[in-house]
Amino acid sequence: MEEEFRALLKRVRAELVSSAEFSAYERLLALVRTDTRAARDALAGVLTAPEQPLWAREIAAFVLGGKGDRRAFETLVLLLNYREPVRCATAAHALARLRDPRTGRAAAALATNPLRTAYALYPVRLLTELRAPESVPALLSTLERLLAARDHCWPVARACVEGLGVLGDRRAEAALVAAREHERLRPAAVAALARLGGPGGGRQGAGSGSST
């Protein structure tokens, strides 16, 4: 957790521009370093208090998530679906360690939302790491939709293929065979099928596949 937290602090510090922001940043770090029940309650207060900057909520949620404090859940899910990938990555890291039973459902809802596909990469990766009951159905649903779509959103589709290989569920075989027909997904799909150990793992697609 230390390496990720240091990277978070370095990024946030680079965003600060005023003396008031630097002072608020130092006060927040003082709470983090104190690590008492009262300090945790104060960090939880940052998540719900009005007019708190996003960076303050992000630091507080990351710290609480790492300590297994479920008060961080809602903020971390919000950040998991944020427009900046670096914040999505930070939130996914903390959610994986929070171990809140709601996380799988939340990540699945974000991954399968067709209106938010551009932001689905980290929810997909989180579902793979969680190995939750929702993981395989959500990854399958997302991959099948992307394979049929005009815009395949290759990074998300590839993450689904890789995740399904890691999860090793034979329900994914047909979708992985279909993914193998796309040039940009073929290496990941072949590797995933090999991990499944099914008949599809040893066959190469006859066509050249689509790359558009």
Rank of each mutant, 00 (worst) to 15 (best):
M1N: 04
M1F: 02
E2A: 04
E4Y: 02
A7T: 02
L8K: 01
L9C: 09
R11V: 00
V12C: 02
V12H: 01
R13C: 01
A14W: 03
A14S: 10
S18T: 15
A20W: 08
L28K: 06
L31K: 08
V32C: 10
V32G: 07
V32I: 10
R33D: 14
T34Y: 11
T34L: 13
T34E: 15
D35W: 10
R37P: 15
D41M: 11
L43W: 09
A44P: 12
A44H: 09
A44Y: 05
V46I: 14
A49Q: 14
A49C: 09
P50Y: 02
Q52D: 08
Q52M: 13
L54Y: 11
L54T: 12
A56R: 12
A61G: 11
F62N: 00
F62Q: 00
F62P: 07
L64P: 14
G65Q: 02
G65I: 01
K67F: 04
K67P: 13
K67V: 00
R70G: 06
A72R: 05
A72G: 10
F73I: 00
F73M: 02
T75E: 04
T75K: 01
L76K: 09
L78F: 06
L78M: 06
L79F: 14
N81M: 01
P85Y: 01
R87C: 00
A89K: 03
A91W: 08
A91F: 08
A91V: 06
A91Y: 09
A92I: 00
R97S: 03
L98V: 04
R99I: 00
D100A: 02
R102Y: 02
T103G: 04
T103M: 03
G104T: 05
G104E: 06
G104N: 04
G104L: 02
A106W: 07
A107C: 11
A108C: 10
A108V: 05
A109Q: 12
L110N: 04
T117D: 05
A118Y: 06
Y119P: 09
A120D: 07
Y122T: 01
P123C: 05
P123D: 07
R125T: 09
L127D: 13
E129G: 08
E129K: 10
L130W: 13
P133V: 01
E134D: 13
S135R: 13
S135M: 12
V136G: 14
L139G: 12
L143P: 15
L143G: 15
L143V: 14
R150P: 14
H152C: 10
H152T: 12
C153R: 15
W154N: 13
W154L: 15
V156I: 11
A157Y: 13
A159E: 10
G165V: 05
V166S: 08
G168L: 06
R170M: 05
R171W: 03
E173V: 09
A174M: 08
A175W: 07
L176G: 09
L176S: 05
V177E: 11
V177A: 08
R180Q: 13
R180C: 10
E181K: 14
R184V: 03
R184W: 06
L185V: 03
A188L: 03
A188S: 12
A188F: 10
A188N: 06
V190S: 09
V190E: 15
A191T: 06
L193D: 07
R195C: 01
R195W: 03
L196M: 02
L196I: 00
G197C: 03
G201F: 03
G202A: 06
R203C: 04
A206T: 10
G207A: 05
S210F: 11
S211D: 14
T212R: 11
